[in-house]
Amino acid sequence: MGSGHTHKLYRHGTSPVHGMPPHCKIAAVFGFVLVVVSTPREAFWAFGAYALLLAGVAAAARIPPGFLLKRLLVEVPFVAFALLMPFVAEGPRTEVLGVQLSVSGLWGAWNILAKGTLGVAASVLLASTTELRALLLGLQRLRMPPLLVQIASFMIRYGDVIADEMRRMRIARASRGFEARGIRHWGVLGKTAGALFIRSYERGERVHLAMVSRGYTGTMPDLHTVSATRAQWAHAAALPAAALAVCLIGWTL
């Protein structure tokens, strides 16, 4: 517990971005991504402007570029898919470095790469500047049904517990000389998954009983109400507002 009760996705800091109320940040990121997706793909410069805006937020949050770039790797499968597109798409062809490529496929690949990368970068910035618990409180403030928030918070709280349980099962298998090499070994892994389900479900039952014995009636007490001032909303709105301006210029040009 040396690192405290924070998740590895979160990067602790005291910047203005960290201090912003979570629901403002979620709304801002969501608005930003929506604007990015609505931008016409022909406006190359607009996507550069979006990237600059995100870089500005990252700088304000004091998130090092290396950290951000490493987390962007989650996108790699789509990059592979997008790179395939110019080869399979229809329409007139053009020659790039001696290879026949579809023009609309190139546009499509660019579209997905640009918008997907910006979306991932915005989400990564949100997750690395907001604590998990705050993120859930923010979602609750944005009128997500309380039951859904509770389910999500249980998932977050016990996700690492269950993952650790699975890790211990893997160590137990390995220490008995088991090594999964192919389809023949799926039976053992299936039994692992089954045992993991039973343990998770039984843990859920125990958690429920523990909660009932502490007076749980179906709703959680509201302990941390987060609220935002008008100024904080205005701060958070800076990102999507700037993006919207860029988007509108992109449409009119």
Partner: peptide, 17 residues
């Protein structure tokens, strides 16, 4: 009223599996 803990733990299970 078991919804929140049980659905939460099953979601954690799906996530882990």
């Amino acid at each position: 009223d078991r919804t929140a803990p049980l659905a939460g733990l099953v979601a954690a299970f799906v996530f882990a599996v």
